[in-house]
């Protein structure tokens, strides 16, 4: 390390210490809203006034919608797996992701039951754009679209739950589905993480 680099490092370190001192001495903590404001994402900050569910029944309704989407994802991956369009390594990943969605669905159904809600009956069949799936890239694009949407769906559900434990669980699922999306994009030759913020 050169003298100049050492100086810069010390300057950065002392600046960090100063910031830490200021925050510690003022007893400040940054809420998610403040972080959103600081990062220039004002639309996230405005979300601080979001209407939240008022009852377990409203939470159950949100959970049932999420359950329906997870069940559909399981069926979509099944369609992909049976399409014969996937190479063995991609098929293996698709089956793994399908298993995750199945676990999400099972957890959501169990939670709905635990809350005293009624678990919605799955539909007899699903509509998928089968006519547009001609090769592996088509299947991956289709799956990536579902995963991308799922990230937004959970991001949009998290602020609504009356029970914050459910928000925590939904965030955990969101993280998993964001990883699916990134890996599918990577497999498609796209930038796996095309931005810093998603809503």
């Amino acid at each position: 390390m050169t003298a100049e680099q050492t100086h810069r490092y010390r300057s950065d370190a002392s600046a960090t210490s100063r910031r830490r001192f200021i925050f510690n001495s003022l007893g400040m903590t940054l809420s998610a809203t403040a972080v959103a404001l600081l990062s220039g994402r004002t639309e996230l900050a405005r979300g601080a006034g979001t209407h939240t569910a008022q009852s377990p029944a409203e939470d159950v309704q949100i959970l049932n919608t999420a359950l329906a989407a997870e069940r559909e994802a399981v069926a979509a991956y099944q369609l992909g797996a049976e399409s014969t369009l996937l190479t063995p390594p991609v098929l293996k990943v698709a089956i793994q992701f399908q298993g995750h969605h199945r676990e999400h669905a099972d957890a959501l159904a169990a939670t709905i039951a635990k809350l005293g809600g009624e678990v919605a009956t799955p539909p007899a069949s699903y509509a998928f754009p089968v006519e547009t799936l001609h090769n592996q890239a088509d299947v991956l694009n289709f799956a990536a679209g579902l995963e991308r949407g799922a990230v937004s769906a959970y991001a949009g559900a998290i602020p609504l739950f009356a029970n914050r434990d459910l928000s925590n669980a939904a965030a955990s699922i969101l993280a998993d589905e964001a990883m699916h999306w990134a890996i599918l994009r990577q497999a498609l030759g796209l930038d796996p993480v095309p931005g810093a913020f998603f809503s």
């Binding site: 949407g149 799922a150 769906a153 949009g156 809503s199």
Partner: peptide, 13 residues
Amino acid sequence: QRCLACHALSYHR
């Protein structure tokens, strides 16, 4: 793209 977890243009999901 945010809507695609639940919606499609031309068919019900």
